[in-house]
Design a protein around this nucleic acid. Sequence first.
DNA 1: ATTACTGTACCGTCCGGACGGTAATGTCAA
DNA 2: TTGACATTACCGTCCGGACGGTACAGTAAT
Lengths: 186, 186
Amino acid sequence: MSVRTGELSSRERILIAATALSKEVGPAHISLDAVAARAGLSKGGLLYNFPSKKRLIEALVERHLREFDDALRKLEADHSECPNALALALLELVSCEEPVHKPHASGMLAAIAEDPSFLDPVRGYRRDLLDRLIASSGDVASALIVFLAVEGLRSMQLFGTDTLGASERAAVFARMKTLLRVPEPA
Amino acid sequence: MSVRTGELSSRERILIAATALSKEVGPAHISLDAVAARAGLSKGGLLYNFPSKKRLIEALVERHLREFDDALRKLEADHSECPNALALALLELVSCEEPVHKPHASGMLAAIAEDPSFLDPVRGYRRDLLDRLIASSGDVASALIVFLAVEGLRSMQLFGTDTLGASERAAVFARMKTLLRVPEPA
DNA sequence: ATTACTGTACCGTCCGGACGGTAATGTCAA
DNA sequence: TTGACATTACCGTCCGGACGGTACAGTAAT
């Protein structure tokens, strides 16, 4: 609740450190000691910011959800004139080269590793998203296809299994837009 | 290398126990002690069958891959007359109520938790699958969409995030078949 | 005086793995 | 057919180390 400088807050540094460590040593092996050292503070300092490992991981999930939603809403606003704004925003969000959620991927894996129920908030968010998508689209089936494809691309990014090339991603993106009967912008 | 009786082998029991424990205590918290106890043998006995935790987890991944591939090939054979046999088989495999891979889900999470690189064989398999799918389909874009949607459904099943209802799953399935220009069977 | 830490010292627990048995089941030569 | 040894499939214990968390005294800035 301060930080006037351009420096990152301790909380932020800790979250970043936990994510990085998860990628380096495996999601199941992030220890408080290691996270603290990586974030450049003492274990006491870490425990001051997050009173338990559970809280730390919850924060990881909350941060991911918040940043994902912010980015999505911004993109949706860009297409506010279009009836399929949400679907379009989703597609853009996941098919760009550096999606907002990608840096958080290994942190999410750490949460799953610790206890899959940490993802309950994510489950809720996704279902809401799907409902909004269905409501905003005339066609339920194509809304579902878009949702599933987005989920597929996201999961591949989560596991680092993103074997699709840029051209392939572009092809799906284009086809998906025709599926939604969105005219190409040129 | 024996087992004439109808009983499960120790290896099998261990694999089942590890998967069940992963679901119960969280993928990061399966210990050799607990797995052994659950499988009804001692830790020494477990280590006899799998000389290290790493080997145990590798076996979990191999088993998943093998059973998935078996099931897929069987379904593919059922549609051998159709040019999109592979795509159809994939869709059927993931959209049925109890997919073969679902019971293995928490075991896969345990593998990811321990070290995401355990999934390297899975990555390879998926890329091959995608290539076969593209080759067998005239249209690259729709092959990609099917692949991504399948991957999305699979990841939802993996995380227990499978919020889709049966009717929704059926709707996507049907739409996907028209995408592939497969005639409805009645 | 409060906030935001640092640093050290601990505690109890758990964990992977090594290891030394051992009972049952072959195998095979004398 | 019997004794000698090998192999298989396991048991139970032990150890060194790591981990989450606690406690607490100190400190520098506001």
